[in-house]
Amino acid sequence: MKIVITGADGQLGYDLKRVLGPVHKVIALNRKQLDVTDEDAVKWTLMQHQPDAVVHAAAYTNVDRAEAETEASYQVNALGALHVASACHMLNAKLVHVSTDYVFDGTKQCAYTEQDMPNPINIYGQSKLLGEKFVQLTCSQAFIVRTSWLYGAKGANFVTKVLEKARTTSELTIVDDQFGSPTYCLDLALMIRELLETEHYGLYHASNSGVCSRFEFARRILQEAGLLQSVLLHPVPTEQLPAVPAKRPMYSAFRHGAIERHGLSPMRDWEAALAFFIRYDYDDSALRKQERGVR
């Protein structure tokens, strides 16, 4: 297939290129090459490329800044999704729209299914949910893929931040009352590739299997990196940390009913995915150069 990736310079975009590139013809577009908030540009660009499918990974993802930059968040996450979905409908192209666990309020206290009612508690989640609705109403050949706690080899994320801090400090304070399903971008990209080769359109929850707290996640990160003995971890409740602009869902783990129902390959458990990432995919050369004073 000929596949367009939006937001191709992001951490998921990086792994989508790695996974889709060897199998399909990929046109990777970053924000400079395609501003999804520009309806005419989206239509013109996709008309020029005539893709069989689009993976819409472009998003406004700064959760706290979105509380102040509300319009920008909605322009990208909601209207951007509408523009891409409209163009895909016009071209009769498949669409994978990437969404988030932040469409939920986190009060369920057990894993969310695709049938659970969304109730976002911050602007980011609200804008992403509206984007989902636009896609559902506009494009009949759409896969809406919600994911959670993403990390990968490209860009900053919880895993890379924990490892960076562990090399510069002997103590870390991590919340122990926020629970979710960590997701390795490479595994998500593989799932999206498999999904694109089907016609099982609809809503999917896609994360590595299992659930953990942020504290448990950080502990396993340090353990896999061989740093657990040199860093003292302090578990604290969210309320004891400095306030941030956006509320977070306290429990946003996923069940993967749609993946199971359609016989798709299950994503591995989060511990195995994390171990693989740190062993084979995490590049800490820049950090090591910094420690040695190399510029």
Rank of each mutant, 00 (worst) to 15 (best):
M1T: 13
K2M: 12
A8F: 02
L12G: 05
D15T: 04
L16Q: 07
L20R: 02
H24Y: 10
N30V: 07
K43W: 14
W44T: 14
W44R: 10
L46C: 00
L46T: 07
L46A: 05
D52C: 01
V54F: 08
V54Q: 05
V55Y: 04
A58E: 10
A59K: 03
T61V: 14
N62P: 09
E67M: 08
T70L: 10
E71F: 11
A72H: 11
V76T: 13
H83I: 12
H83P: 10
A87G: 01
M90A: 14
V96G: 03
S99A: 08
T100C: 07
D101R: 03
D105T: 07
C110Q: 15
C110N: 13
A111V: 06
E114Y: 06
Q115W: 13
Q115C: 04
M117K: 12
N119D: 15
P120A: 03
I121G: 00
I121T: 06
I123G: 01
Y124A: 05
Q126L: 08
S127D: 11
L130V: 14
L130P: 08
E132I: 05
K133R: 15
T138Y: 02
C139Q: 08
V145D: 09
T147E: 05
G152I: 04
K154V: 09
F158G: 01
V159I: 13
K161M: 11
V162G: 02
A166S: 13
T168Q: 14
T168F: 11
E171H: 05
I174E: 04
G180Y: 10
T183Q: 00
Y184M: 01
L188W: 09
A189K: 04
A189W: 12
T198D: 01
T198N: 00
E199D: 15
G202Q: 07
G202E: 14
Y204G: 07
H205S: 05
N208C: 12
V211F: 04
C212D: 06
S213K: 04
F215C: 03
F217Q: 13
E224M: 00
A225W: 12
G226D: 13
L227T: 03
L228C: 05
S230M: 05
L233M: 11
H234L: 11
H234Y: 11
V236S: 12
V244H: 00
R248T: 13
A253D: 10
A258K: 11
E260T: 12
R261C: 09
D269L: 00
I278F: 07
I278A: 03
I278H: 06
Y280P: 00
Y282G: 06
L287G: 02
E291R: 03
